[in-house]
Amino acid sequence: MDDLTGFQRDLLYVIAGADQPSGQDVKGEIETYYSTDINHGRLYPNLDTLVNKAFVEKGELDRRTNYYAISERGRQAIEERREWEKQYVDT
């Protein structure tokens, strides 16, 4: 996960916290968090990066809509990240 951008990590966390969200679902959540519009040219290439790095799996809901699901590798990367953060942030 250390080679992901902050935006990609945020996308990964959103996907991990949802049940097979569509790209539009992810977009809505991330726009709420960032308090700004996220255009398709930023969103989908970053989602594709997560798929290509095997952190996320992509499937079809219908011919026009894809869903995204956290992979085991993605879940493990989040767990490792949280362990790393714990040494710096006391919660």
Results as ranks from 00 to 15, higher is better:
residue 87 Q to H: 08
residue 42 R to V: 10
residue 20 Q to I: 15
residue 78 I to S: 00
residue 50 L to C: 08
residue 74 G to P: 02
residue 5 T to R: 06
residue 64 R to M: 09
residue 48 D to W: 15
residue 9 R to N: 10
residue 34 Y to N: 15
residue 21 P to F: 01
residue 80 E to Q: 07
residue 83 E to A: 12
residue 16 A to Y: 14
residue 50 L to P: 03
residue 15 I to A: 00
residue 61 L to Q: 07
residue 79 E to I: 12
residue 79 E to T: 12
residue 20 Q to T: 11
residue 88 Y to T: 05
residue 23 G to H: 01
residue 42 R to T: 06
residue 16 A to M: 09
residue 18 A to K: 15
residue 71 S to Y: 03
residue 8 Q to I: 04
residue 5 T to A: 03
residue 43 L to F: 05
residue 53 K to G: 04
residue 33 Y to L: 09
residue 18 A to P: 07
residue 30 I to K: 10
residue 2 D to Y: 12
residue 71 S to K: 01
residue 42 R to A: 15
residue 54 A to T: 14
residue 80 E to M: 14
residue 48 D to V: 03
residue 1 M to P: 03
residue 41 G to P: 05
residue 12 L to R: 00
residue 54 A to L: 13
residue 22 S to H: 02
residue 4 L to D: 06
residue 33 Y to F: 07
residue 64 R to Y: 07
residue 12 L to K: 04
residue 12 L to Y: 00
residue 36 T to G: 08
residue 42 R to M: 14
residue 72 E to W: 13
residue 17 G to I: 02
residue 23 G to R: 03
residue 80 E to S: 14
residue 88 Y to I: 05
residue 26 V to N: 04
residue 82 R to N: 10
residue 90 D to E: 15
residue 22 S to P: 02
residue 70 I to M: 05
residue 23 G to I: 00
residue 20 Q to N: 05
residue 47 L to R: 00
residue 15 I to K: 02
residue 44 Y to F: 06
residue 13 Y to G: 09
residue 55 F to K: 03
residue 15 I to G: 00
residue 32 T to S: 08
residue 25 D to A: 03
residue 62 D to H: 05
residue 3 D to L: 12
residue 61 L to N: 08
residue 40 H to K: 10
residue 46 N to Y: 05
residue 4 L to N: 05
residue 55 F to Q: 06
residue 5 T to W: 02
residue 85 E to V: 11
residue 79 E to A: 11
residue 62 D to R: 03
residue 43 L to P: 04
residue 43 L to W: 02
residue 9 R to A: 15
residue 65 T to I: 11
residue 77 A to H: 04
residue 82 R to D: 12
residue 87 Q to G: 09
residue 72 E to L: 09
residue 81 R to L: 10
residue 88 Y to N: 08
residue 85 E to M: 09
residue 35 S to E: 13
residue 17 G to K: 08
residue 26 V to I: 06
residue 89 V to E: 14
residue 43 L to Y: 06
residue 80 E to R: 14
residue 30 I to A: 03
residue 20 Q to G: 11
residue 63 R to H: 09
residue 45 P to E: 03
residue 15 I to N: 04
residue 54 A to W: 12
residue 87 Q to S: 07
residue 21 P to Y: 01
